[in-house]
Design a protein around this nucleic acid. Structure first.
Lengths: 247, 247
DNA sequence: GATTTTCATTTGTCAGACATTTAAAAACCT
DNA sequence: AGGTTTTTAAATGTCTGACAAATGAAAATC
């Protein structure tokens, strides 16, 4: 594990990359303890501050965790689904927010992926998942719900559908995509009429899941996608009318 | 933007979180320049080293980029698809590698997601995508190809299929899932016979894409998933036989 | 007016110091 | 001997002060 002092890139970035590569390559495995900061500074022939900056970079990616005290140090961290999930949501949200991704593009991607678990969800849904879906549908029908709360419940419903597929890898990937959409969805105003349509479609999805009918879930999701995109289009059109030349 | 000095957590982690939240909330937008390290140290009432460690954490997530010199500093970075993609691959690869995710689970998730772009790919594939797919199929048929090279070509083929869906968000999400599988796929030995079967299925996929037949792509992908899982099962069974009680 | 030099600003790196945490080792007291 | 307290060593967390290197703007020069 060496670094190139002639490289113009930051030394701390090089050191972080070297250690990260060792982890990805399996040379350092979960639970292993890195040498102390002082020892690493000696090995790489840099100061302790530089080593520390490198370790902070790795900590930011949940690759290591540090412990203070006599037998403390930096340990290779087991990347949990939870950590990975949180990172993915941050990344996806920023990606969508910073790159002017159109609502249509994000919506299309999200529903395409969600339809991918329709068959598995129909096959494996547990009573727990069904109960969660029913509960969220009930909440969505209550009057006086703010748009934000409606959106949050929508996310919870779809999250339950995804989890019903019973594949943690799929859940991790999809939850990121679904939750990253939330800031975009929050821009929409849901009228009572469109809420009714959404609740009806959610009910169809829950019924189909209960009946184990995968294709019916997929069809309902397709209709939900169409409805959502139309709704967004009309909302954005109405919003653009007062200021057509708006930046 | 404040931090709590009584919080037992690292000050640098708190500062990083405060700035990250401001970015996610849109209070800091792409291109904005953060105050200089010295000014941040004054604002947060910590030393410059602590501020630097916080900034390195953000840099590790591609949230900021730094520039040296008179009018340099830390700037809010536009998260590119490329950066997000690279991060996702690292995260997914480690997640799969560290959590003993079974080959079946990962495989199921990957193909489920990939089938999600079958319809879109059939509709939008460009001659470029078809050419890439054909080229990779041709490479996969050549004798003397190592297993690693075969796997790499397999990834390139599926990458082209995903890109053919013409949705950058979908590409970003799926590419991570597909490429994260590569280390698991590399554990498999591909016999000449199974390579032939895979190439035949790839050809069917390319033909269906050319014909604009989405369902046919999905069917072929399903068969490819079945074949891959059977192959993995037999390989792992053969490997387990010499040491059935192996840890 | 164009070129060169100077200069101020900012990040990158280093060295040394002290505070804090932690677990093991040592000392101490039944 | 056994249990409790104290000490100690090792490690990370933070601070201070310094210098190097890069970079763009301003000043000086031709």
């Amino acid at each position: 594990m060496k670094i190139d002092p002639a490289n113009p890139a930051d030394l701390s970035a090089q050191i972080a990359a070297a250690i990260r590569d060792a982890i990805v390559a399996g040379k350092l495995i979960v639970g292993d303890r890195l040498p102390s900061e002082a020892e690493l500074a000696d090995q790489f022939e840099v100061s302790r501050s530089t080593v520390r900056e490198a370790l902070k970079r790795l900590a930011a990616q949940s690759l290591i965790r540090t412990q203070r005290g006599a037998h403390g140090g930096a340990f290779i961290n087991r990347l949990s689904y939870e950590d990975a999930h949180a990172q993915q949501i941050t990344t996806s949200t920023l990606l969508l927010g910073m790159n002017d991704v159109s609502f249509d593009t994000a919506c299309e991607a999200r529903f395409a992926m969600e339809r991918a678990c329709a068959a598995l969800a129909a096959e494996r849904r547990s009573p727990d998942h069904l109960a969660t879906m029913r509960a969220e549908i009930h909440r969505q029908g209550q009057p006086g719900l703010t748009d934000e709360a409606f959106c949050a419940s929508d996310v919870a419903f779809h999250r339950a559908l995804v989890d019903a597929a019973g594949n943690p890898v799929l859940s991790y990937q999809l939850a990121g995509a679904v939750e990253a959409m939330q800031p975009l969805m929050n821009m929409i105003t849901f009228t009572a009429r469109s809420r009714g349509a959404i609740v009806a479609l959610h009910t169809r999805i829950a019924d189909a899941a209960e009946a184990g009918d995968g294709p019916a879930i997929a069809t309902a999701l397709q209709e939900l996608e169409n409805h959502t995109r139309q709704l967004a289009q009309s909302v954005f059109a109405a919003r653009a009318r007062p200021a057509p030349q708006g930046s």
